[in-house]
Design a protein around this nucleic acid. Structure first.
Lengths: 339, 339
DNA sequence: ATGGCCGATGCAAGCGCTTACAATGCTGCA
DNA sequence: TGCAGCATTGTAAGCGCTTGCATCGGCCAT
């Protein structure tokens, strides 16, 4: 018994009449123990209700079977689905997920990374590539395998599992342009320190360029994540003259805000103005009109990331990047230019 | 340096020319160390980039400054806001939050509890009271302070911070009845092992009874969490003859599903049928018509729970329960009975 | 001047577990 | 029959940190 009254390895060993080493082996490498002994030990484990002390195990084994993930926010659904899949796959492989949120704050992220490393995370999942290079140095020094998700950049400091934000936005923008829209405005997430947001902006500009429109004239409002903010930004964009006929948003949450504001303003979507989103979170198909958006394979991304990261941890591999496909989901919030 | 190449207490001590005890004290009880020494030590800490090894600290101190929380699901927004507040308050008090999800599965919850205890959680937050009494015994034996949230029952095994689900639903149902509705149906979450769901059902029955209606005749469909499920259940309820004029849902997610299905079925809300939710998640005010629902003080609940739990941990108090108020939010999905 | 105190620091014993290495007892083959 | 070799189990040395207790000066009161 330890201070907290919980049974320890010693208790189990005594009860089973073996050494602590044998008990430990029963739990961690059962093949090394002959069946009769193992049964006796397991019986002792059961009757005592023994659970190994995690900290002690970590200390001794220098392994935690824990993966840390730091996401910008827990408040919304963007990362929830992917993370859920990530954790399920980790669980399947015997790992536990530790999640921390950085609240979109680089310093906070830095401190969370240190915390997770101090807690002995065997590997780390980060969102997006943009961050102080010192962090990558630190992680390399500490020898903690790190994988980036929700973004794909083949030659960044860390391997990444994600999709091509720029290309996806390009495709969506082309669809918008093909429907006759020429006056397009954008509502983006804050692009500072967020390569995903930046890539999406670039994608839109690429498309404008490709179709002979002036990307320099593109009206962009950057605003933090939040439905309210999307609404406010939309309102501002609607004061432009001539008024945009399509507003492309950097993510679904902003788009939903825009949609609501459009209704407040008495604008019909898509007859008066088209609105598009990005991510295809559940919300996108619930609002009416449903959002035209880019579908991101969240679950697949989570699963792949888990597999890759575990591989990096166990085989000490450098990790390979992987690009997943996205898909444009046409719904009713986007219509042809007609006025 | 340890195996991973990270500096240890010994490195810092050597560099600062003091013993490890002094370094440890600098970090944990600075007052015990004279200023000059402390500065020297801190300088060493900085230049080496030392971060204490968590597992080692836990082993030695038998404290983790970690609070565990097990929630039924991460997939949706119900617990997100409250948990966010919970974690912010914990952070303020120097604690870290470890979240695990039970996927609404009692066995899973049991194993998550064991895991968190093995990880040395100083305290635990659980959702709702319903669970195997053995779990409470275990927790008591392990001497792990436990608090229940999202539910309030003054004389349960564990203290709770929450609200009166029954009373809240009663109030909402009264509002519905006062609007003239007599044929009311319910779509509830699965009530098995979920006192919140059960209390809400009871609240509705109380109201029916109080107004001379037969609670035995109430058509209830229980279905797992999910928009789709809410839709399917609604469809079934609409086949009743006579058709219900109001469908009260156990939570907003089911209600949103019901709302969508109503539109699919060509039913106008609230003219043809009224729909109500519970929780007042963000979604409730985004759908159209916006949902009439019960507002739950998520953030306040999270904050209070954190304060109370930390108190239980630090002062070894038994913990006091606390009931927070709810509020009925009238929106457009509920209208008077008119047909 | 001397003893007693107290503040600052060091010493060293664990915390509960894993694991390299040693010890033991069989098996099977020459 | 004897011994190499193997499978099984035990021994004990840490993992990096905290903390009770010992130590050591310096200061004050007598």
């Amino acid at each position: 018994m330890n201070l907290r009254g919980a049974p320890t390895l010693v208790d189990v060993a005594r009860r089973a009449g073996v050494s602590t080493a044998t008990v430990s082996r029963c739990l961690n490498a059962p093949d090394l123990v002959v069946e009769a002994t193992r049964e006796r030990v397991m019986a002792a484990v059961d009757t005592l209700g023994y659970t190994p002390n995690f900290a002690a195990r970590v200390m001794a084994a220098q392994r935690t079977f824990t993966i840390g993930a730091i996401i910008p926010t827990m408040e919304n659904a963007i990362f929830a689905r992917g993370l859920q899949a990530f954790q399920e796959e980790l669980h399947r492989r015997g790992y536990t997920l530790l999640v921390a949120s950085s609240a979109y704050d680089p310093d906070m992220e830095k401190s969370q990374i240190r915390t997770l490393v101090a807690r002995g995370a065997d590997g780390l999942l980060l969102i997006g590539h943009d961050r102080d290079p010192l962090i990558y140095d630190y992680l390399k020094r500490q020898d903690v395998p790190t994988l980036v998700a929700w973004s794909f950049l083949p030659d960044a400091r860390a391997p990444s599992i994600g999709f091509d934000n720029r290309k996806a936005m390009f495709d969506l923008a082309e669809a918008v342009i093909r429907l006759g829209h020429r006056r397009i405005a954008m509502i983006s997430g804050v692009s500072q320190g967020n390569d995903r947001a930046r890539q999406r902006i670039e994608g839109l500009k690429d498309a404008l360029m490709a179709h002979g429109l002036d990307p320099g004239a593109l009206a962009i409002i950057e605003t933090p994540y939040g439905i309210e903010n999307g609404g406010a930004a939309f309102k501002t964009q609607m004061t432009l003259t001539p008024r945009p006929t399509a507003v492309m948003c950097g993510n679904d949450v902003l788009a939903v805000g825009a949609l609501g504001m459009a209704q407040n303003l008495g604008l019909r979507v898509p007859q008066d103005v088209s609105i598009t989103g990005f991510d295809d979170i559940e919300l996108a198909s619930i609002v009416s009109p449903a959002l035209t958006t880019v579908h991101v394979p969240h679950r697949e991304m989570g699963r792949c990331a888990a597999r890759e990261l575990v591989d990096m941890v166990e085989r000490k591999s450098a990790g390979v990047s992987m690009r997943l496909g996205t898909e444009i989901i046409m719904r009713l919030s986007l219509g042809p230019y007609a006025s």
